[in-house]
């Protein structure tokens, strides 16, 4: 490895579309950045925002959430709930002083292995630009400054 920063990314995929997209990328031997480690859930609706916080607190620099395209969820409409949580979570992260861009949502169907791989590559680049999160080391003793822009933001409408 060179000195370029290699982010660690935890990804959550649903069992039906996006995990199979990862399978499809594998079967087609599509190469993508090795920085992502995936966890399979049954549905993106299972994603508890606490999982994302836990991953970020545990040393991940970014979290990828992936589910079926809107309308394609195996459980009818649970990915819409994932979308709502995702938007709220990004707002919460901002409040914590964490760049909301560290969490990304990608819809990927079982056929979109190539697309998922592209999205992963793009996300790794985005996180690389943001730099390490190092959340575990943020405490008063470590002397690290919290990011400056944590003023309260106007509340945006969250689409249903």
């Amino acid at each position: 490895m060179t000195d370029t920063f290699e982010p660690v990314i935890v990804g959550f995929t649903c069992n039906w579309c996006s995990y199979r997209a990862a399978d499809a990328a594998g079967t087609a031997r599509v190469k993508y950045a090795p920085n992502v480690r995936l966890i399979r859930l049954m549905c993106s609706g299972r994603l508890d925002p606490a999982f994302v916080l836990k991953a970020l607190a545990g040393g991940a620099d970014g979290v990828l959430i992936s589910g079926c395209h809107p309308g394609d969820c195996h459980y009818i409409e649970q990915n819409y709930k994932a979308l709502r949580r995702f938007l709220l979570l990004r707002r919460t992260l901002k409040g914590f002083g964490v760049e909301p861009e560290r969490v990304k949502l990608v819809w990927a169907s079982a056929a979109e292995g190539v697309r998922l791989a592209h999205e992963i590559n793009a996300f790794v680049e985005e996180i690389r630009k943001l730099g390490p999160l190092n959340w575990p080391k943020w405490d008063n003793q470590s002397g690290r400054d919290l990011p400056a822009d944590i003023e309260p933001q106007p509340i945006e409408e969250v689409p249903a």
């Binding site: 859930l41 049954m42 549905c43 609706g45 299972r46 994603l47 508890d48 925002p49 195996h74 459980y75 649970q78 709930k81 949580r85």
Partner: peptide, 8 residues
Amino acid sequence: QGCGTCVA
């Protein structure tokens, strides 16, 4: 059906 949305 086990999607887990309620759990979350």
